[in-house]
């Protein structure tokens, strides 16, 4: 029995791993350190599916009821 690909679920928005250049830009834009970003665990099913490592920043493109699309960022941390 093949495993269900959870990234296809309606509740799961698009997750992308940012490359380092974009991370630097992001932190500069908001004038924050990486520790101030919201978090996602390495053990999170979606992070696992993306093969994300600790310290990666994941860009999440959510469907938003007010803005239609909203971008959110989470840094991968150990659980």
């Amino acid at each position: 029995m093949e495993e269900y690909n959870i990234t296809e679920h309606n509740f799961v928005p698009k997750h992308l791993i940012l490359d380092e250049k974009d991370v630097v830009e992001l932190l500069k834009e908001y004038n924050i350190s990486i520790r101030q970003l919201p978090r996602i665990f390495v053990t999170d099913p979606v992070a696992k599916a993306l093969n994300a490592k600790k310290g990666d920043v994941i860009k999440i493109i959510r469907k938003s009821p007010s803005a239609k699309e909203a971008v959110f960022y989470r840094v991968v941390v150990n659980a």
Binding site: I6, H9, F11, V12, P13, H15, I40, F41, D44, P45, V46, A47, I60, R62, R74
Partner: peptide
Amino acid sequence: KALGIEAARQ
């Protein structure tokens, strides 16, 4: 547990 933190938010 099944779908991750973003799905939990939803």
